[in-house]
Design a protein around this nucleic acid. Structure first.
Length: 684
DNA sequence: ATAGGGTTAG
């Protein structure tokens, strides 16, 4: 810019500054500033220059000049504060606010409407409350809706919904922004019904909803799976002409998938001409939450093919898809994409990766990722603790749990589930009991069914059956799962009488519970009480109860092979049988003895032995060994039920004779078989 | 001359 050197009158300066704002050039303003200073007019133009800097995005320069001025207009103070808030310079904004008060400049409605956000961002409720008090003294709290909604927003962010509501009720002229802030507050703190009530009262009060309101209220509908209202609001959106607004569309999509109507979500998605990363992510999340992990991954690939860049939200969700169906290979590929986007150390992606590796039995990988996470939080901690827990590394889990205290992270209910599982899987009975007792006393955690389930299992398996029973009695309405766990513990400790007593109790509660029948018939079978086995099985048949057939699957080269006991439908059955026969000879020669106690049918010994051979995990392992070379040092198998004692013993021997690691995930935990030993130490 | 609320996650 060429500066007019001849004319140096105020009118020229004003027009120069205006030009700078139009061209958004900070360096030009600096030149103008120098010019003005030379001519001695600075005092009169300070506010104007600052306004110029701010409008050009020069926060730092604005601040520099601001500090040099002896006096600034209240408008300038306000602009400075709001622009600092907008640039996430929260501390500086609060500093300016305090400075203005010290200098005797009273904050006004503009000041409060921007500074309050600063307090919620800093987490300083106290200071926010002080500012609130000040606004009441100045008569601004209820008379100005901007101040009112900023206060509502602040209290909402702090979860102080009672105060948010009190302020909202006092504001004289309530508008859509104020109501939306209140709706969001309620919905983000689990009070979605209250959010809906606010929405209704807003509409009844004649205030029209806009795209922001629609987006927020749909989240509330989705959270409580209130499809009826969700559909009503869908109608309202169409009527109000917000149909094509991306944010409300996205929330609509999420609402439908949270209500389980994934097809409707897909319909909404199809109407987007140019779906953005958020839209894609919402769809993918919906698919994952509705158990359609494979479709979610297909959509993810489609998204990247359309050169839409995934973000941390997208990646953590597809990682979750991989871990829920234990697709390690697929997950590793996504890990590479995560790295490519520089999100390895992100808290959410990190937690999802830890979870993935944990659920695939690789605690070492999980730990490597975990150690790289920049900002650990409760969830990422929980993921790592859970990885250790399910893989039977109880001491490591407890060590991390203790580290949470040092990091000042409050353990939540999920943390305790993981910790108790860790104790359970490692036989740390005393530690488990102590931690359980401390939950309510020291951590104020509400005990859930899951916590009780862990403890019943822990006590039961260690033989403290009466204590386990007493604990179940404490639960208000105990679930069959708790009783089943106790029955199974009775089986382990040969307490047939007690098992029968508990069974009668359960069947009074839930007469058709197939799990209980199966457990009892297994207990009878293991003690050779075949007449009782037949009786149980007859009852089951009469009641048309079916048990889940045992299944094992193995993922080789991204292809899943599923096996069931005695099922020879696999195209490679011949090879499987050959490998299995050869393996049997080799393990027997080093000491394996079939344990026919685990055959739950009354057959002669030879037939019993045969039936053991054909357990689904043995077939899967034989297949995996046949298909892979020695270079594949570890084999992963997955089971829907728990591993039986004979297979467990057999796999130990196999791991030794073939010198490979076999990792098995059953319905409860992982077993890492290596060199003739299992990571569970034979306690499971 | 300056101001307040919203879409996706582990």
């Amino acid at each position: 810019m060429r500066l007019a050197s001849t004319k140096q009158d105020p009118v020229t300066f004003l027009s120069l500054i205006r030009q700078c704002i139009d061209t958004k050039s900070i360096s030009d303003i600096k030149k103008v500033q120098t010019q003005i200073m030379k001519s001695g007019f600075l005092l009169g133009f300070g506010d104007k220059l600052i306004d110029g800097y701010i409008k050009c995005g020069g926060v730092v320069d604005a601040r520099k000049l601001f500090d040099e001025l002896p006096k600034r207009h209240i408008v300038t103070w306000n602009s400075m504060i709001s622009t600092h808030i907008g640039h996430k310079r929260t501390k500086e904004a609060i500093g300016l606010y305090k400075k203005m008060i010290l200098e005797g400049v009273f904050p006004d409605e503009y000041t409060f409407s921007s500074i309050l956000k600063g307090f919620s961002e800093m987490g300083s409720l106290r200071e926010g409350q002080r500012a609130h008090g000040f606004s009441i003294i100045l008569g601004l709290e209820a008379s100005n809706v901007f101040v009112g909604s900023a206060l509502v927003d602040m209290y909402s962010k702090f979860g102080q919904m009672r105060d948010a509501k009190l302020v909202a009720d006092r504001v004289v002229k309530r508008d859509v922004v104020l109501f939306t802030a209140l709706i969001v507050g309620y919905s983000q703190h689990g009070e979605d019904r209250e959010a809906l009530a606010v929405f209704v009262s807003m509409i009844n009060g004649g205030v029209k909803a806009n795209e922001y309101t629609f987006a927020s209220i749909l989240i509330a509908c989705g959270n409580v799976e209130n499809l009826w209202n969700g559909k009503l609001i869908h109608g309202l959106i169409i009527k109000s002409g917000f149909e094509s607004v991306v944010a409300s569309q996205t929330s609509l999509l999420t609402m439908y998938s949270k209500c389980g109507l994934i097809d409707d979500s897909l319909k909404v998605f199809k109407r987007f001409a140019n779906p953005n990363p958020v839209t894609w992510t919402s769809l993918i999340v919906g698919l994952v939450q509705n158990g359609k992990e494979e479709v979610a991954l297909t959509k993810f690939r489609q998204m990247t093919r359309n050169s839409i860049n995934p973000n941390a939200f997208t990646l953590s969700s597809v990682l979750k898809a991989c871990s829920s169906i234990a697709m390690l290979e697929e997950g590793k590929q996504i890990h590479a994409i995560v790295t490519k986007h520089g999100l390895d150390r992100d808290t959410y992606c990190g937690a999802a990766l830890v979870d993935l590796y944990g659920k695939c039995g690789s605690t070492e990988m999980a730990r490597l990722v975990f150690d790289d996470i920049i900002e650990l939080d409760v969830v990422s901690m929980n993921s790592m603790v859970y990885s250790y827990a399910q893989n039977g590394l109880g001491h490591e889990a407890l060590e991390l749990f203790n580290r949470m205290k040092d990091l000042k992270l409050q353990p939540n209910d999920a943390t305790f589930v993981s910790v108790l599982i860790a104790c359970n899987n490692t036989g740390l009975v005393e530690e488990g009991c102590q931690i359980f007792a401390s939950m309510k006393k020291n951590h104020n955690i509400e005990l859930t069914r899951d916590h009780y389930a862990c403890m019943v299992d822990l006590l039961g398996r260690s033989g403290r059956l009466e204590e386990a029973e007493a604990l179940i009695e404490q639960v208000r309405s105990p679930d069959v799962v708790l009783w089943r766990s106790l029955i199974s513990a009775c089986g382990i400790h040969g307490e047939v009488k007690m098992a029968e007593r508990i069974k009668d109790k359960v069947l009074k509660l839930a007469p058709g519970d197939e799990g209980t029948h199966v457990l009892l018939s297994n207990i009878y079978a293991s003690t050779g009480n075949w007449s009782q086995v037949i009786e149980m099985k007859t009852t089951m048949r009469e009641m048309r109860l079916k048990k889940d057939p045992a299944m094992t699957w193995v993922d080789i080269d991204r292809e899943v092979h599923t096996f069931m006991a005695g099922d020879w439908s696999h195209p490679r059955s011949k090879e499987i049988l050959e490998t299995l026969t050869e393996l049997m000879e080799r393990v027997k020669s080093v000491g394996y003895v079939p344990d026919t106690r685990f055959v739950l049918q009354n057959l002669d010994e030879e037939k019993k032995e045969r039936s053991l051979y054909y357990h689904s995990e043995k077939l899967a392992i034989a297949f995996a060994l046949w298909r892979t070379s020695n270079k594949t040092t570890s084999i992963r198998i997955f089971k829907n039920l728990r591993v039986c004692g004979d297979c467990h013993n057999w796999i130990k021997y196999v791991s030794k004779v073939v010198n490979r690691e076999i990792i098995s995930r059953d319905s409860k935990r992982f077993h890492h078989f290596k060199n003739g030993l299992c990571s569970c130490g034979d306690y499971w």
